Computed example of a mutant assay.
Amino acid sequence: MPHAQKTRTSHVLAVDDTPDNLFLIKAILGDEGYKVNVAKDGMDALDKIAQSPPDLILLDIMMPGMDGYEVTRRVRQNPALRYIPILLITAHEQSSVVEGLDAGADDFIRKPFDTDELLARVRSLLRLKHSIDDREKMSQQREDFVSRLTHDLRTPLVAADRMLHLFQEETFCPISPEMKDAIAAMIGSNQNLLQMVNTLLEVYRHEAGQKKLTFAPCDLGIVAQEIFQELHPLAQEKGIHLQMDVQPMANSLEKQEAIVLGDRLELRRVLTNLVGNAIKFTDTGFVKVRIFKDLKDPEYSTSQPSTNSTAWMVVEVEDTGSGISPEDQENLFKRFRKGKHKRADSGLGLYLSRCIVEGHGGTIHAQSTVGKGSLFTVHLPVTQA
């Protein structure tokens, strides 16, 4: 009688070089309602897995040509495959459980196996498989919903922004100064919400792999200068001094250049976010941007530098603001991790900045002391032509 837990037909691939063993496994699992395919060796198994990934692999270890350990490693190293549980089967006492588990197997059973034990292990691994699949499906559905929602939200927000500006410009009728102030506040709130929706949409594009970066030579010094011109009124209003220092590059003694190969729009988004945050959290003092070339790899980098890169372009954004607590620094670049500061926003801006920087093969890092200010450092690889 089929086990009551199975509500869907599970596909199992049995791999063994002995036909009798395959016949036995197919008979046992077939009686339980599983759909069983068989493979006679490692290469045959890899071909069948690539063509039609099963829900579970029962894999003999000792096979000619390619043993079960190697098959397991190749399955785990294939990025195109979703997670497939692997149950290793062997008749040899010397077979290494450690080697099998280190290769990526999930469980291990020896021949001659007890039928009830085999079925119990199969059920256990399939529960794990279906649980992971269901969780991934729910996650994908949630992300699709948020992506569609952000798309749909932009239309009324943009329309409201245009209408508010028409009211403010007295297009329809004269309005009082008090009404103009109220409309200005509404415009500001609407723009903040629109910016949040746009940021959320960009985050999901990056996470879904839908964001395509357009790489071209980009002068970070010019980008920073543009951002300074845009944000200067805000800094001036707060009495903050904006400073920029672009150090001369090698072979560019007559002209200060800070050129990387990157997506100008996305890198501009990163610098705007960092400089904007620095102004936002600074009440007195300065915000300073330094751009220079460095031949050393960043000490905090967790990824290997690009093989095409012989140097790094470094962007530092320093401020004399309120600083960031050690607890908040741990989650600074994580998704939806809002800081405890009263001015902290949704926590998406720095996460998106990290996605963009890492998409360029770079790194982003922060150092901060509460009450003394912060230093954000971005390393971007300089690709040689």
Rank of each mutant, 00 (worst) to 15 (best):
K372D: 11
A39T: 02
N277K: 09
P381N: 07
D133F: 05
L13E: 04
E143A: 13
L166F: 06
D134N: 12
T282H: 03
K293M: 10
S147N: 11
N308C: 11
L348F: 12
R354A: 09
L295P: 00
T310M: 09
H241Y: 02
K372P: 01
E170M: 11
P217L: 00
V314R: 05
Q140Y: 10
V158M: 10
I222T: 12
D134H: 11
A4P: 11
K340V: 05
I222D: 09
Q77G: 05
A208I: 02
N331M: 14
V97W: 00
A120C: 08
K211S: 10
T282Y: 01
A258N: 05
P326Y: 06
Q5A: 12
L149M: 13
R269Y: 13
G371A: 05
R205L: 08
A366C: 15
Q94T: 14
M196Q: 15
S368L: 04
G359E: 04
S124E: 04
C355S: 14
F281R: 01
D44S: 13
D41N: 15
R142S: 14
N192E: 15
F145R: 07
S325K: 07
A45K: 05
G321T: 04
K129Q: 15
N308K: 14
F228Y: 14
M179T: 14
E202I: 00
K338C: 12
L46K: 05
H341W: 07
P381E: 07
Q236K: 14
V97H: 08
F376C: 06
S374F: 01
K48P: 01
D16S: 05
L125M: 11
S10C: 06
L125E: 05
Q367C: 07
